[in-house]
Structure formats: C-alpha cells, structure tokens
C-alpha cells in the first residue's frame, strides 16, 4: 500500500519533470501560433497601439478578417484546390514511388544503388532556376493557370523523397516471406502485391502524409504557374492577395494560415506513430 503510493508519487514527480522539460519546447513551438490566433481576431486599430498589452484583446474581438477571407477572396476555392492538389500529388507519388522503391530495394537491379542516389540528387537542383523550364512543360501540356499544373509539378519533389523512404522500408520486409509466396505460385507481381505491400502499409502511409504536407510548402511554383484567383492553392493565394502593396491584412493572413495548418497538424499527429514506424523501417536497418 505504502509502496504503491510512493511509486505513484515517484511517477508523478517524474511526470512533473517531463512537463517542466517540455514547457520551453511547447512555448517556442506554440507561441507564434497563439500570436497568429489572437491577431486573427483583433481589430486593426488594436494592432497598431504601442501602449496595449499585445496578448489580449484591448478592443472587442472581431470576425471581420474571416469575413474578408470568405467573402472578398476565393479562400473557399483555395482550400478545395489545396486539398485536391495534395490528394492528387499523394496519389501520383504513391503509384510511382511504391513500385520504384520496391524495385530498387528488392529486385537486385544492377544499377539500383546509383539510380537511387541519382534520384535523391535531384534535390540539388534549385527550384528558382527549375521553374523556368518547367513553365514551358506546363504550357506544352496546356495546363498553365490551372491548379492541375501543380499536380504535375509537385511530384518532382515528392517522388524522390517517397522513393527513398519506401526503398529503405521494403528492405526490412523479410525476404523469406516474399520467396515463400513466389514458390506458392505467385509471380513477382503477386508476391509484391499480396505479401510485401500489405506489411508495408506504415511506410506507404508515411510517404503519403509526407507528399501531402510537402505539397503545401511550395510558393514559387504556384506563383509562377497559377495566376487566376480561383485556381490558387492557399499558400499562394493568401500572400498574393492579402498583401496589397505596402498594406498587410494581418488578421486575414494569420487566420488563413491557421485554418489550413491546424487540421493538417491534427492529421499529422494522428499518423505520427505510423510515420515514426515508417522512417524507422526506412533507414534503421
């Protein structure tokens, strides 16, 4: 009884230490978010007074910035564009990187190693130069100024990542499983689909989540390829239409970022365990 209590006390003390240790990290990570959140609900004059306490409302909170977002810009369309682009990019990444990762990891292709490395090295090509020739490609496909252009372009940076991630992951699947399946009459394809793929779900999911988040981090390609107001994704639409010359619409900018960022953070956190499993499998063994 007494020991159980001391154990519990000990445990509680341990937790307190952990919380104390985590506090600065949470503070660093979350403070800017809190700042964005409160700015999104502040009236403009409240932002430009030096004598006010900045952390709370000195004038009544307002929904005006969100009204601007939804009624004076195409924000609704931007959200839909962002999500559809991300979904397509994730899908394209999936159908290209999964087979590629598998081929490089398992099929003992003579040049596998060098091909894998070259795929990774494409990251060395700076986007600030790449976007010019790519704009030609986009125009040739007749996709200029449609969000479809970004569906074509974003996989250039999600496929290499996905391939590497999955390559490492497939390596951890025991070879015997696959060979047993082949002996049982499955071909290479059958073994891949019926045996390797099902046990690799965490890795595949990781690649998908990653493709999803990476496609929300671009600005330059979106800027260069998609100008019409109703075709932009959020990360392009918001800074391009809510900064007018030398006037920043702080409230709307912050609100817009949070409205897409927070749900993705929840999603991300939800998959984080699988994600961790994913990268562990990817390069740990």
């Amino acid at each position: 009884m007494a020991t159980a209590q001391t154990l519990r006390q000990k445990e509680r003390r341990r937790h307190l230490w952990i919380y104390a240790g985590l506090t600065p990290f949470v503070f660093i990570a979350v403070f800017p978010i809190y700042w964005m959140l409160i700015t999104a609900f502040k009236q403009d004059p409240d932002l430009y007074r030096m004598d006010n306490i900045p952390f709370w409302f000195n004038l009544a909170p307002t929904l005006r910035h969100f009204k601007i977002l939804f009624f004076q810009t195409n924000y609704g369309a931007w959200i839909v564009n962002t999500m559809t682009i991300a979904a397509w990019v994730a899908l394209i990444t999936l159908v290209t990187a999964v087979p590629a990762g598998y081929a490089l990891a398992r099929l003992r292709l003579p040049a596998a190693e060098n091909i894998g490395i070259s795929v990774f090295m494409t990251y060395l090509v700076p986007p600030i130069i790449l976007f010019l020739p790519l704009s030609r490609v986009v125009a040739m496909l007749g996709l200029q100024d449609e969000w479809w252009a970004l569906v074509v372009v974003y996989p250039t940076f999600t496929i290499p990542f996905g391939t590497w991630l999955l390559m490492g992951f497939f390596k951890t699947v025991p070879m015997e499983m696959e060979e047993a399946a082949r002996v049982d009459g499955c071909g290479y394809l059958g073994a891949f689909l019926r045996v390797v793929l099902p046990v690799s779900v965490p890795g595949v999911l990781t690649a998908v989540i990653f493709a999803f988040t990476l496609s929300m981090q671009d600005f330059l390609y979106g800027l260069a390829f998609v100008a019409p107001g109703d075709q932009k994704p959020v990360p392009v639409g918001v800074p391009t239409e809510l900064i007018r010359g030398d006037v920043y619409y702080w409230g709307s900018l912050m609100g817009a970022a949070l409205l897409v960022g927070l749900p993705v953070a929840v999603l991300y956190n939800f998959f984080l365990d699988r994600f961790i499993q994913g990268i562990t499998g990817g390069v740990g063994k």
Binding site: L132, L223, A224, A227, G245
Partner: peptide, 20 residues
C-alpha cells in the same frame, strides 16, 4: 488575374519561358 507587384517579374519570366 492578380499577384503582388514584387512577384510580377518571376511570373513574367515564367510566361516568357513558356511562350504562353
């Protein structure tokens, strides 16, 4: 279509490269 004036050169370069 509208984009911020400071980013117009990038878009212009892209349209030039695309020829469209």
């Amino acid at each position: 279509d509208h984009i911020p004036h400071l980013e117009l050169p990038a878009r212009m370069a892209a349209e030039y490269a695309a020829g469209a």
